[in-house]
Structure formats: C-alpha cells, structure tokens
Amino acid sequence: MVERAVRGLRVVGHRVVNSVWRLGYASRFFSLTLLKSATSFRRFHLTIKEIYFTGVLSLIIIIVSGLFVGMVLGLQGYETLQKYGSAEAVGTLVALSLTRELGPVVAALLFASRAGSAMTAEIGLMKATEQIAAMEMMAVDPIARVIGPRFWGGVISMPLLAAMFSAVGVFGGYLITVVLIGVDEGAFWSQMQNAVDFRQDIVNGVIKSVVFGVAVTAIALFEGYDAPPTAEGVSGATTRTVVTSSLAILGLDFVLTAFMFRGA
C-alpha cells in the first residue's frame, strides 16, 4: 500500500520535474532565438523566404475563411437584431466581433494548423535527417540560420493575415446584409464607424495578433527542434504544435481581453 503510494508520488514528481525542465529548455531556446535574430535582419532575404512560406501560402485559407465567417456573422446578426428593429446595427456587430476577437483568434488558429504544423514537421525532419547537425558541423549556427528567419517570418505574417481576415470578413458581412438582404448601406457603415474605435478595437486586435504570432511560431519551432528524430517523434510533435498553440491562443486571448477591454 505504502509502496504503491510512494511509486505514485514518484511518477507525479517525475512528470513535474520533466515538464519544468522542458519549460526551461523552451525558454532558453526562445531567448537564444531572440538573441541570435540579427542574422534574420542582416540577411533579410532569408526572412522573406519564410514570409512566403508562412504568409503567402496561408493567404487562400485565410481569405476564404474570413469571407465565410463574415457572411455567417452577417446572417446570424441580422436574424437576431431585426427582432429588435435594429438591423442596421449588424455592421457594428460584424466589425466588432471581427476586429476584437474573431480576426486575431481564428486567423491564429488557422495559422497554427496551416503554417505552424508545417514548420514543426520541417524542422523535425531536418533534425531527423541530420541537416541541423550538418549545419552545426559546418560552423553555421542553426538557431540563427534556420530558426530565426522562420520565427520572424511568422511574427511578421501573423498580424497581416489577421488584418486581411478581418477586412475580408467585414466585406463578407457587407455582402450578405447590404447587398443580399438589403440593409441600408449608409446606416451599416456609419453605425460601424461610430462604434468601432481605432485605438480601442483595431490597435488592440493587431496587438493580439502579434502576441499570437509570437506564441504560435515559438511553439511550432520549439516542438520541431525538440522532436525525437523518428517518424512517430515528428508526427507527435506536429500534433502537439497544433494542440498547444491552439490552447495558448485561446488562453492568451482571454488574458489579453481581460486587460484590454476591462470596464471600458
């Protein structure tokens, strides 16, 4: 009985020590990435290449999803608001939900599953096929050469993608409510402009997406770099990237929202 309890405690202790160790390792990795990011800017074409892979290649999914999310918001919002005779407020609803929440959050979730998982798999495979080791042997620092540009590429792409998501979403809402249902166009835009505040809503949305960009890219790169060099290792790391970064996005979103929109 006692023996069993001791063994159980030991398992718990082992888990805790392991996760703390991993957290420390991740922090060290993250700070090294930041310290060595001079290369990413001095040789900016390396970063440009990564913006292409993370940003440009995510464009289609971001634009299509943004359009649909905006259209659904328009439909649902209209459905509810017209009961209270204020269908014109649908513009406000669509714009506020997109700029404050859905734009940054959904774009980041899509980014995590589209670009984040690809990043993890790529780094994991580079490690499994000893490409990272080969670089180290050629006296080229893999964190500066491989990780840094990917990190900054992701951090630069994320807010741009989120902004496109929101803008396309507002357009989708406009298409459904104004063009299709026939809500008054002037009221749609003016109510929206009255309610959406540049600093309070749009700047805060951009700040959120930058934070999400940092979180998703850092998680994806760390998982890839830390992946065991086997097929299961890489696939497990890819799954963990999507799960961890989705949870991180939602958790961070709550914290940021609590700070940004407190009482205002």
């Binding site: 929101s166 803008a167 009255n194 959406v196 749009i202």
Partner: peptide
C-alpha cells in the same frame, strides 16, 4: 509575392482603420 502579401496586409489594416473604425 512577399511584396504583394505585405502590401495587401497593410491595405487591409488601412481599410480597417479608415473604413471600419473611426480613425
């Protein structure tokens, strides 16, 4: 491509600021 992407992103931000928001 990256130029187009960045320009589109900045354009989206401008649209949000000027057309959607009260900037």
């Amino acid at each position: 491509w990256v130029g187009v992407f960045v320009a589109a992103g900045i354009a989206a931000l401008m649209v949000l600021a000027l057309k959607v928001g009260n900037a």
